[in-house]
């Protein structure tokens, strides 16, 4: 049986042998591994990129005060991104499941259509959720657009739900019973955190301060973009997104306001994406030197197709 940390180590080792850059989490509150610059920004432009990392994720609205066996406002994703996406990406993924101790021939593994869209990142992709005996353990997405820019070449994203996989492998009915390393359980590490953070997210977080913070971050983001500082700019986008999520969990956003907030984050995300593209271009798309990907540089890549797309409910 694999402990929680063993699963992470196994995945890191497996993807490391697939020539992935093993990175560490991005040190900010994000809603998903996709927000890590190693996914969002690296999906932009022609440069090849392979990376794998753990990312703690925050979804304030999903908090349940440590009471619910499955819902957490803070949890872990293991993220793999491969660009260009190799034609055997599904086989690679299935092998990775064997690497963490699953015998694929003894389970019912299914790829069930699930397309992904993030209106606030101006991003969408096509793919599946991967089912293990009916349980979703992974999100598999072929990125089509990010920050309003088409992804050429396409990036393949594999997002493992670590807690779900661990619960399955360890046969636990609640996330808190997961063995972290044999001595220490998930409960020991996180239950208090869940309780306190849930209370903060739902009851305490000051709405006025949050609203102001959003404005400040948005302003600051625009300033950085003016100065062609896309990486700090992107981090401010991440901040805006998290503040929005907090406001949402405080129930402070009406239906109409919601669309407005999302549109503001999206505008920032797009500008950052453009800025990143321009800055990489200035370097001559360094990483593309090592492959033939320069051939697809296309001056029309700034097509913004997200403009008329309806803003869906999900962030």
């Amino acid at each position: 049986m694999q402990n929680f940390q063993d699963i992470i180590l196994s995945l890191q080792k497996y993807w490391s042998t697939q020539n992935c850059v093993i990175l560490q989490p991005h040190d900010m509150e994000v809603g998903a591994g996709t927000f890590h610059p190693a996914t969002f920004l690296r999906a932009i432009g022609p440069e090849p990129w392979k990376s794998a990392y753990v990312q703690p994720c925050r979804r304030p609205k999903d908090g349940r005060y440590g009471d619910n066996p499955n819902r957490l406002q803070h949890y872990y994703q293991f993220q793999v991104v491969l660009k260009p996406s190799p034609s055997n990406i599904i086989e690679l993924y299935l092998d990775s499941l064997e690497a963490i101790g699953l015998d694929n021939s003894q389970h019912d593994i299914r790829f069930v259509e699930d397309n992904w869209e993030s209106p606030s990142l101006g991003a969408w992709g096509l793919g599946w959720e991967v089912w293990l005996n009916g349980m979703e353990i992974t999100q598999f997405t072929y990125f089509q657009e990010v920050g309003g820019l088409p992804c050429r070449p396409m990036l393949g994203e594999i997002t493992y739900g670590l807690e779900r996989i661990a619960m399955y492998l360890q046969e636990k009915n609640t996330v808190y019973d997961i063995n972290w390393n044999g001595d220490i359980s998930y409960r020991d590490i996180f239950q208090q955190n869940e309780r306190e953070q849930s209370a903060y997210n739902f009851e305490i977080a000051d709405i006025r301060t949050l609203v102001q913070s959003f404005e400040i971050c948005e302003k600051e983001a625009n300033k950085t973009i003016e100065h062609q500082l896309c990486l700090p700019g992107y981090e401010l986008v991440i901040k805006c997104s998290h503040i929005f999520n907090l406001l949402d969990s405080r129930g402070a956003i009406s239906v109409t306001e919601r669309a407005g907030y999302i549109a503001r984050v999206r505008t920032l995300a797009r500008n950052v994406a453009k800025c990143f593209y321009t800055e990489r271009k200035k370097t001559g798309f360094q990483l593309a030197e090592i492959s033939n990907l320069k051939a697809i540089l296309d001056p029309n890549e700034f097509q913004e197709t997200m403009d008329n797309r309806e803003i869906s409910k999900n962030v």
Binding site: S85, P150, P153, L293
Partner: peptide, 10 residues
């Protein structure tokens, strides 16, 4: 419609 690339990446 999905856009993807052949193994040449291009």
């Amino acid at each position: 419609l999905m856009t993807y690339q052949l193994d040449d990446g291009v």
